[in-house]
Structures are given as C-alpha cells and as structure tokens.
Computed example of a mutant assay.
Amino acid sequence: MHFLPEKLDDYVVSHSQDEPELLQQLTRETYQKILQPIMLSGPYQGRVLSMISKLIQPQTILELGTFTGYATLCLAEGLQSNGDIHTIDINEELVDFQRKYFDKSPFGAQIHQHLGSAIDIIPTLDMTFDLVFIDADKPNYVNYFHLIIDKLNTGGVIISDNVLWHGKVIEPVNTKDHSTKAVLAYNTLLKNDTRVETVLLPIRDGLTISRKK
C-alpha cells in the first residue's frame, strides 16, 4: 500500500539505494513459482530493513515469518561478522527455496532456519536478541511480543510489519475480522507498554520501530 502520491513515491524509491542483484533474482523466482508473492518485503522496504540493521549492527537477529527469505537477507546485511540470524516459518515447502538463496549470499552460514510454530519455537531459543523482525500471522502479534520482550537486549529493537494493515486500522472493524482487531490491539500494546519506546512509520503497509528501554 502506498500512502504517498504515486509520482512522489516513485521519486522516493528512485533516490534510495538500488536493490541488490541477488534479491532481484529472488523476487523474480518468487513471482514465478510461489503463491502470494505480494508477501515479499519488496525493494524499498528491503532497503529500509537493511539500513536499520546496519545502523544497529546486531550480533543476533530473530525473524518471525521467513516466506522466501527476502527480508532475511536484507536484515543479514547488518549482522556483525560473527553474528547470527534465526528465522522461523511454518511453511515446509519453502525451506529449500529459502536455503538456495541464503547459500548464494555471503550470509548463508549465519542464517539458521526453524520450521514450525513460532509460539512453540521461541521459548526453545536459549539466547537474547539485538533485533527482532515480526512479519507473521497477525492474530499472534501480541503473543509474539510477550514471548520475545524478555529475550530482547536493552537497547534492542523490534521492527513490526503491516501495522497499518491496508488502512483498515482507521476503518470500522468487522466483528469477524480477527486480523484487524489483532493489529489494533498490538499497536495499542506498543504505544502503552512502558518497556519500549515506539514510533510508527507510514512505510508501505506500516512499519513500527520499538526500542527496549
């Protein structure tokens, strides 16, 4: 979703860093072979994720929702040389696709895939994180926050995707629309939880940056 006029949005994109060739290849193959390719972060948001990661220079990253690995590779660009990124997804059919592109990148050995429910996997990860990216099933966003907040280092950052949810956050909510209700609850949590300070950015479908105090 674009919140700027198309011409202005085009200007913003054209004056931001270009998408790396490997990610262009990943995008093409995702659109050719994978259902719902719109779930890709895309070149502009990908460069935003890369820049945030490079500014933080994390030792450890946790990603919830791998899809075909586009955002994973963007986030990995900011990893310290001995750092690691753990990425969780429930779709078994995408594991080999992800690994192919991970291993084509300079970060293959640093990227650790976890298959299954993030609700089950997060408690098994015996480590803390400097950066967390949440881009998974919306009804569990609040649950994910509560699972990761104690695993987030002081000064660590949570990036949350789709927090404007196609603009539905400012529209009357259908009682059966569980995803929109969940996003609204999550946005309220991030605003009010005293453990984090939060800014919501109108980038694509909405990105929230929350820093642990």
Rank of each mutant, 00 (worst) to 15 (best):
N143V: 09
A136N: 10
H114G: 13
G116M: 05
L131T: 05
D130A: 11
T124H: 03
M127L: 09
K138V: 01
F129V: 02
Q113I: 06
G108N: 09
K138P: 01
F102D: 08
Y141T: 04
F97L: 05
K104T: 02
H114L: 13
D126F: 04
N140C: 11
K104A: 05
D137C: 12
Y141E: 01
Y101N: 14
P106H: 05
K104V: 04
Q110P: 07
L115A: 11
L125V: 06
G116Q: 06
I111F: 12
P106W: 03
T124E: 06
M127K: 08
Y144H: 01
D120T: 13
P106N: 00
G108M: 09
H146F: 15
Q110W: 08
P123I: 07
Q110H: 09
G108C: 07
P123E: 04
I134N: 00
F145I: 03
S117R: 14
M127D: 03
H146A: 11
P123R: 07
N140K: 14
F107H: 15
F133G: 07
N140M: 12
D137F: 14
L147M: 13
N140T: 14
N143S: 15
T128D: 01
A109W: 12
V142F: 14
F145S: 02
S105Y: 08
S105W: 06
I111V: 10
Y144G: 03
A109V: 09
F133N: 00
G108W: 12
N143F: 05
F133R: 09
L131M: 12
Y144A: 00
K104R: 10
Q110K: 14
D135R: 14
P123Y: 06
A118G: 09
K138F: 04
Q98V: 13
I121Q: 04
P139L: 09
I134G: 01
A136I: 12
Y101H: 14
Q113S: 07
V142A: 15
F97P: 01
S105H: 00
I134F: 02
I111A: 09
I119M: 11
K138I: 01
Y141W: 03
R99S: 14
I122E: 03
S117I: 12
Q113P: 06
N143A: 15
Q113Y: 07
H114P: 10
V142T: 15
Q110D: 04
P106Y: 01
D135Y: 14
Y101C: 10
Y144K: 03
A118N: 07
D130L: 03
K138S: 04
Q113N: 08
K138Y: 01
K100W: 03
M127S: 05
N143W: 10
N140Q: 09
A118K: 08
P106M: 08
D135T: 11
A118D: 00
H112G: 05
D120S: 10
N143L: 15
F102P: 02
